[in-house]
Computed example of a mutant assay.
Amino acid sequence: MSRNLVIQTDFGTSDGAVSAMYGVAISVESSLRIFDLTHDIPQYNIWEASYRLYQTIAYWPEETVFISVVDPGVGSSRRSVVARTVDNQYIVTPDNGTLTHIKESIGIKEARVIDEKMNRLPRSGESYTFHGRDVYAYTGARLASGVITFEKVGPSIDAGDIIALTKPEAFMEGGVIYGNIDILDVQFGNLWTNISRELFNEAIIEYGDSFEVTIANNRRQVYKNSMTYGRSFADSHLGEPLLYVNSLDNLGVAINQGSFAKAYHIETGANWRIIIRKAG
């Protein structure tokens, strides 16, 4: 019985790259159920690839196979791996930090390096720039369709050796909460932080409370203002900023029916800090 195959890349859909990956997968097994996670990861942005996997993977059935190809080191000595999570999902990807959030927030049970002598698209051995098609789509489809077992992917490696990017943790000190802007809710321009609802609630808060919110890029302050903590966007007026809990149970920052990110030119990652303190 075939598993689901879910594909994520930074390729976009304006040319035939993603379609070629589909073609390889269907050529392995025509009954495969193939889905797109996204193909709009910003080019070379490994951090965002890692986050989008974390955002999505828990909502898919056990044994789903994910392919993630954001691979600025394609053709180099970086490893190609398949990781098996503690929830029995599989991720086929370059070992370049794409598994950061999975490793630290979900857990990797075991991992294997892809043996390209067995798991590489036939007659593609002289191509070094499209491993998404030649290695990842081919291996992922073989695994999802049952042509190979996980053990046939290649030699086992220590899951602890999987490469992880620097991932700052949120914390509270003296009643002040410190965190990072992990990612954007791209369509709407909301900021998604790494501050969990549990940590935020340690400050003893209620809906309607006001907070002073400061956002900085390294040491440069980008934003500082007061805003209200609301249950939903309906708890604020049009154009007002608010704090809320997002769909991953972390704290978000938004403008009601506006893009916070565009309004204040805010981006994401380890250098983008947010500091929240209760007003008054």
Rank of each mutant, 00 (worst) to 15 (best):
M118G: 13
M118D: 12
M118W: 14
N119M: 09
N119G: 12
N119P: 11
N119L: 12
N119Y: 11
R120I: 04
R120A: 04
L121R: 15
L121G: 06
L121Q: 09
L121A: 06
L121M: 15
P122K: 13
R123C: 07
R123M: 11
R123H: 14
R123T: 12
G125W: 06
G125P: 02
G125H: 12
E126Y: 05
E126Q: 14
S127H: 05
Y128S: 15
Y128W: 04
Y128T: 15
T129N: 05
T129A: 02
H131V: 03
G132A: 07
G132E: 06
R133C: 01
R133I: 11
D134G: 07
D134T: 02
D134P: 08
V135L: 10
Y136I: 00
Y136C: 00
Y136H: 06
Y136P: 03
Y136N: 04
Y138E: 04
Y138A: 05
Y138V: 08
T139F: 08
T139W: 13
G140A: 08
G140Q: 07
R142N: 11
R142Q: 12
R142I: 04
R142D: 02
L143Y: 13
L143E: 01
A144W: 03
A144D: 00
A144H: 04
A144P: 07
G146D: 08
G146H: 10
V147E: 08
V147R: 14
I148Y: 03
I148G: 06
I148P: 03
I148H: 11
